[in-house]
Amino acid sequence: MQVEAIYHQGQIRFKRPVRFKYDDFSITVIVPEEAIAVYDEITELPASVSDAAHSMLDRIKNILGEHFHPRPEASIQQDREALFEALEEKYLR
């Protein structure tokens, strides 16, 4: 069935009450294209980045050296997996 819902601050609320048989199951949500934010929309950066911010990035570069390079975007799930792997390495191996 299709149910109209409202998205607000990370939560989706159905516009009419629906009772479910199960606690967990997957659903498909249609998100309007115009509501999806992309990083290109950060247009409000200050005209010049502050010295403090520059210096912070320089320090990170210094710490990581050649390992400070662009990487693909990561989802929360990917970060979780990396965390589980690290925990596994520490406690299970």
Partner: peptide
């Protein structure tokens, strides 16, 4: 955590890196 990891691991475009650094840097 994910915002900080984006900064350290350069997982976002450069201008976003600066944006995160700006949020963190004292000023």
């Amino acid at each position: 955590v994910n915002v900080l990891l984006d900064l350290w691991l350069q997982r976002v475009p450069e201008k976003v890196l600066f944006f995160i650094a700006e949020l963190i840097a004292k000023g």
